[in-house]
Design a protein around this nucleic acid. Sequence first.
DNA 1: GCAAAAGTGTTCCGACTACACCCATGC
DNA 2: GCATGGGTGTAGTCGGAACACTTTTGC
Lengths: 248, 248
Amino acid sequence: MPGKLQKNPDHPLTKLALADFKVGVDNVIFSVDTDQNRLLVLLVMRHQEPYMGYWSLPGTLVRQGESLEDAAYRVLAEKIRVNHLYLEQLYTFGGPHRDPREDAQAYDVRYLSVSHFALVRFEEATLIADGVCGIAWYPLAQVPRLAFDHHQILSYGYQRLRNKLEYSPIAFDVLPEVFTLGDLYQLYVAVLGEGFADYSNFRARLLKLGFLQDTGHKTSRGAGRPASLYRFNAEAFATCQDKPMVFI
Amino acid sequence: MPGKLQKNPDHPLTKLALADFKVGVDNVIFSVDTDQNRLLVLLVMRHQEPYMGYWSLPGTLVRQGESLEDAAYRVLAEKIRVNHLYLEQLYTFGGPHRDPREDAQAYDVRYLSVSHFALVRFEEATLIADGVCGIAWYPLAQVPRLAFDHHQILSYGYQRLRNKLEYSPIAFDVLPEVFTLGDLYQLYVAVLGEGFADYSNFRARLLKLGFLQDTGHKTSRGAGRPASLYRFNAEAFATCQDKPMVFI
DNA sequence: GCAAAAGTGTTCCGACTACACCCATGC
DNA sequence: GCATGGGTGTAGTCGGAACACTTTTGC
């Protein structure tokens, strides 16, 4: 684990020289299209080197006076207009040589990426075309070759999304204010795939947890019996959060 | 890519100027003293400003050509000599003003901390006194006031440790090659506290998982019936890792 | 024998699974 | 009526919690 290489790896001072960094924030932004039952990830086309012409995760470099989280929200806001979302830090990728710009500049700057993961409400999310366009939702299975180490970041984010769904109420951050249990179930199916649980069991488990409030209203969507509309009750959730809770 | 930055935070250009970073690595290093049944965290005394005279988590700044993980291992190796350990990245703290050095230098440089969390084998860990001394294991309940935002990092690390113990085999990274189920249980008790599970139930659950190999040997420690010595079987663990596994 | 620690077994109960079945609506 | 989706119930099974009990050692 010694410090490897630079221009002269054997020079004694080399081992003590601190690296200078630019810090980037790259976002894995997910959304669920419940109509088509698809999990989508937001990609942008790069218009500059390096990796010009490649798709990549939306990212930016952190500015003076800006926190990492602020930067993450800024990237997001530059690409889509959305009011309801969940966002958290994912992982920091910082090995040397992960960005070709480092080599070009002969090792005096390193590029580090603090990745974030977000889940946004699909229905209200409108993409912001930045002139040249080049921004799109991709179904997870059809993601093309990505710039940098963004494939690694994406798979890390996907794993986190599935874990979070299982024991966190992040689904309610992107569902409408009131929703049916069918809506909720569809979202879970789109992310976790078929066969994670039977609908009626899913339903029973969620209702037993006690933080879903029946609004008393119903909604009728085409054929079939009208569904009850529920609301997520954050206070009730907080009180029972200590005990392990699995939505599976 | 603008070069030099303004010292006036209200200047419009400031908002677009990228921040320059030094990247630090701070480690939350845990160890379990099974004799005294205590969970310990490694702290070092700071001998320089800022926060001179305060205890802090061991940390360092990342050098040229050094990966984040390498830096984390280097900090650890500078403070203790140990062969068996588990280490992973924890979280990245990077808000502005988290390091007083930033203010002194008027926005020229930001200090970002990529924290890591480690669990090391207590029996073999020997602290490396660096002349002035000032390095010690602290029981978690007796940790003094810490430098920077290290309290936040520590509590984050403690949470991660407890989670990891529940569904990961990290305990076996710091137990001896062969160990008794009592040893294993003690480790869990020291970290999670009394009353996370009955010993006999803990025992039954772990054995049923099937990756603990009875060596056939026994050990007698003072009074009481001799205990069987077990070995962790990594191959057997890998095969059954897909199904959810809770050691609780 | 007795205390101490290891190890085994048993009972109770709640949770998840896998269904079968009833209900309300559009057409 | 009947297809469609919403909603309820139940029988079987698995696993954890609690606790009693047996085994093997040191003294």
